[in-house]
């Protein structure tokens, strides 16, 4: 039986894209690398203790919970103490850029899919594939387009973390009770008025759950992306694996957990605060 050339076809397509478009993506990479560097340097400009106090203050302001603020304060101090400060800032920067990108693409697609059956039918199977595909696979094509490094990591992270944003935005809007949509229609609302005055406000908690998941997935992917040179906390883990340094591996792991918990708690509160 002849082998179906699935892999080689995909390879051919990617090769084609690389030879014809990589000059664009590589140029983009150069620009992005600078943006990332400026952001990181900006965040590192403040002395860590000041930064930590400010972040703890912001978490309190957002959540109104002393516990979360205290955890933030102590957690970040521990990270600083472990000598992982620069790596953490690098990871946070990547997560920030990747998830903001994923959200600004994913939420509009989710809205479109919710309002348009045709779009929905195309998007759903793509999402299924995106979510079940092992995360590592995205790393491979990222390299020829963006080179080894942070931009390739961001690219893979965006793709990996986008599905929940699309899915939950779509779900949130579809869950708006039909009679309310009908009512908005009966009062002469146009599409945009319906969207901004009714559907999005009611879908907000669900959309925020999607945002939360996107950020969490983004964080996990940024760590994995250390394999293609993303550095940061993931880089520390990666190095510890290669040198079998159990202690420093766990330290970096704990740093990741702390960042994840802070992000999760804050986002959960932003999502439910509205009510």
């Amino acid at each position: 039986m002849p082998r179906i050339p699935l892999g080689s076809t995909i390879e051919a397509i990617i090769d084609f894209l690389v030879t014809h478009f990589s000059f664009l993506t590589i140029a983009f990479t150069r620009i992005m690398e600078n943006v990332i560097r400026y952001l990181e340097n900006g965040l590192l400009f403040l002395p860590p203790w000041l930064f930590i106090v400010i972040v703890a203050g912001i978490t309190f302001w957002l959540t109104r919970k002393w516990g979360i603020a205290l955890f933030t304060l102590l957690g970040l101090l521990l990270i600083w103490n472990m000598g992982l400060w620069v790596a953490t800032i690098s990871t946070i920067t990547l997560v920030l850029i990747a998830t903001l990108t994923a959200l600004s693409i994913g939420v509009p697609i989710g809205i479109l899919a919710a309002l348009n059956n045709g779009v929905n039918r195309v998007v759903q199977p793509i999402l299924d594939v995106m979510q079940t595909m092992p995360a590592f696979v995205y790393l491979i094509p990222a390299i020829p387009f963006f080179g080894l490094g942070k931009v390739a990591a961001i690219f893979a992270t965006v793709i990996f973390s986008m599905p929940p944003a699309i899915r939950l935005t779509c779900l949130g809007i579809q869950q708006v009770p039909r009679e309310l949509v009908e009512c908005a229609d009966a009062f002469g609302s146009n599409k945009w008025q319906k969207l901004f005055k009714l559907q999005l406000p009611l879908a907000t908690p669900t959309i925020m759950a999607g945002v939360n998941q996107t950020v969490m997935l983004g964080l996990s992917m940024v760590v994995i992306a250390a394999m293609i040179g993303a550095r940061g906390l993931g880089g520390e883990v990666w190095r510890a694996i290669q040198r079998l340094q159990m202690g420093s591996g766990f330290e970096a792991g704990i740093g990741i957990v702390i960042v994840a918990i802070i992000l999760d708690r804050v986002l959960q509160h932003v999502g439910t605060k509205k009510r």
Binding site: E179, E182, D185, A186, F187
Partner: peptide
């Protein structure tokens, strides 16, 4: 049609259909 709905046709629904937010 939207204009007519807005100026001439008020509707009251069985399950109230109030906007909860």
């Amino acid at each position: 049609l939207r204009h007519i709905r807005l100026t001439k046709l008020g509707m009251v629904f069985q399950n109230f259909a109030l906007f909860p937010h």
